[in-house]
Amino acid sequence: MIDHAHDLACVRDATERLLTAVAEVDNASLAEPSRLPGWSRGHVVAHLARNADALVNVLQGRPMYASAEVRDADIERDAPRPLDVQLADLRESGARFQAAGDAPADWTRTVELRNGVTDSASRVPFRRWAEVELHHVDLGIGYELEDLPDEFTEREIDFLAQRFSGRSDIPATRVTDGTHAWRTGRTADEPEVTVSGPAAQLLGWLAGRRDGGALKARGGTLPKLPPL
């Protein structure tokens, strides 16, 4: 069962780690490319701030973004800002998200995210946790997939395996780190392919952050995953 209060605390901790790390860079470094194609580090930080506000909208029953075009324009507008402005925005938007999460609410209700995707309100804090952790890695400033909390890594693998489950363009696949196992891809009685390796590498492959070269595939080749 999802514990939204626990996940809100994890978001708070992850945000503090992110703020501390970003405070160590300078304006020139912030303008350099991130690990996300076409985005500078400033784009990543701006996206994280705007995503916090977007998830406040979700929790309060408003559309997540006015439109895809407005979302993209806001990120482009905010990306070039100097470090002190970016940090203040990231901190203040994160605080707004925490306040919205702390407000009394029916956490069993269904909420709508982007592109018509729906989910339980109780899962919104975990979704924010994933944004903060993975984009911290995307900044390329010393925080790697191997540094992620074990709980987050296990749960995000589970989340992504479920996201790709039932996809006809992905063979039935068993994913395992040697301790835990997940199934994804086409529904079948027995998986066609078993993908194994360290949890951080599995997460990197599922999340599109690594090419899977460090993983082993038995029963077929490593499945090609669609972009998130």
Score class of each variant (00 low, 15 high):
C10L: 12
D102F: 02
E112M: 14
D211Y: 13
R183V: 06
D150F: 12
E32L: 07
G101C: 03
A28F: 10
H43T: 14
R91F: 07
G116R: 06
I170V: 11
A14Y: 08
V56Q: 08
V195S: 01
R81H: 07
A49M: 05
P223V: 03
P80C: 01
A73K: 13
L113T: 13
D84H: 01
T194S: 06
D189T: 04
D177E: 08
S168V: 00
P82T: 09
T194V: 03
I75D: 01
P171Q: 09
S93L: 06
D189Y: 02
P171D: 03
L202D: 11
L87M: 09
V85D: 00
T118A: 12
A105C: 10
L30D: 01
G219N: 12
S165F: 01
E156P: 00
L134Q: 02
P125E: 03
P82H: 08
R71N: 14
G142D: 11
L19D: 03
E144Y: 09
V56K: 00
E92D: 13
A5Y: 15
R17H: 12
D3I: 14
D147W: 04
P82S: 08
G178N: 12
V175M: 10
N51I: 08
P37C: 10
M64T: 13
F164A: 00
R183Y: 10
A217P: 06
V195A: 06
A181W: 14
Q201Y: 06
G61T: 11
V25C: 08
D26P: 13
A199S: 15
Q86F: 09
P223R: 02
A5Q: 15
Q60P: 00
P226I: 11
V137K: 00
D89L: 07
H136T: 12
A199C: 13
A172M: 05
P171I: 09
S67T: 14
G61R: 12
M1F: 15
R167F: 03
G38R: 12
S34E: 07
R183H: 11
V45L: 03
T179P: 01
G208L: 05
A172P: 02
T187K: 05
Q98H: 05
D177F: 00
E146V: 04
W205A: 04
D119S: 14
H47K: 15
R128V: 06
H6C: 14
T15I: 00
